[in-house]
């Protein structure tokens, strides 16, 4: 396998009953880059991310993560990635702190190291003392921050983030984006994310894939896409591509 390639997706197809969620889906993501999936609702972003996170089985095609097949070597793949679902919660009767501890114990055996990681998560989430409260007392945004923190804290080789800042206020979105960038630069994390926020995508992503009806209809860096579609920003480029498609 080529260590420069983090994710390789070939001819991926996923069918739910009579819905074709992914169709001839192709993707290659380099190690250490931030890659964004954008596209209208129902385009297949979440489906693609879930297949890569070993949650769904593809109907056809193959997908590998660091050279490991997501179907046949799922258990091995899970050791290298963390996944932030689009809609996710935390155990409501645990405290934020206990939740982080619980999640860390799967990957880190050494208690001292674990403590460090949980402290890092406390910083990422910005929850401070509120980490001692039960999750059921958290607001939606607080929960989201807790979950973002848990996906980054262990410095995984690959973080798959489905709409990471959904439900966050402006300040916290900015904070989280800054952290994602920092983790990629400082700790060599590769990030695959989906988003509806073009500002976020422009700020974060090295490359973007525009998906419509289960297919990639355009790919490139945000600036490439803007020039290609002669648009002042990504939002307009998006609108042009999707309306044409």
């Amino acid at each position: 396998m080529d260590p420069r390639i983090a994710i390789e997706v070939k001819n991926l197809g996923k069918v739910f009953g009579d819905i074709r969620a992914l169709d001839e889906f192709q993707l290659q993501i380099r190690t250490g880059e931030i890659y964004g999936l954008i596209g209208p609702n129902g385009a297949g972003k979440t489906t693609a991310l879930r297949i890569l996170a070993t949650l769904l089985l593809p109907t056809s095609g193959t997908a590998t993560v660091f050279g490991l097949n997501v179907v046949d070597e799922a258990a091995e793949v899970r050791k290298h990635l963390t996944y932030l679902p689009e809609e996710a919660g935390a155990y409501k009767n645990l405290s934020g702190h206990e939740y982080l501890e619980f999640m860390t114990k799967f990957t880190i055996r050494n208690p001292a190291e674990r403590k460090e990681v949980v402290e890092a998560a406390a910083k990422i989430s910005g929850l401070g003392d509120r980490l001692r409260d039960k999750v059921k007392a958290y607001s939606k945004g607080m929960k989201r921050r807790l979950l973002v923190a848990r996906t980054l804290m262990t410095r995984p080789k690959l973080a798959i983030l489905d709409e990471p800042t959904s439900g966050l206020d402006v300040l916290h979105s900015v904070h989280v984006r800054g952290l994602i960038k920092e983790y990629v630069q400082r700790h060599g994390v590769t990030v695959l994310l989906s988003s509806h926020n073009m500002l976020e995508v422009e700020y974060l992503c090295d490359r973007v894939a525009l998906i419509n009806q289960g297919r990639i209809v355009a790919e490139g860096s945000p600036s490439e896409l803007k020039t290609r579609y002669n648009a002042p920003n990504l939002e307009e480029a998006f609108a042009k591509v999707v309306s044409v498609a």
Partner: peptide, 14 residues
């Protein structure tokens, strides 16, 4: 109900 399953299923545990 609490949407924790997806996360749990991607953890490195059988």
């Amino acid at each position: 109900e609490e949407k924790t399953l997806e996360t749990l299923l991607t953890m490195p545990v059988s």
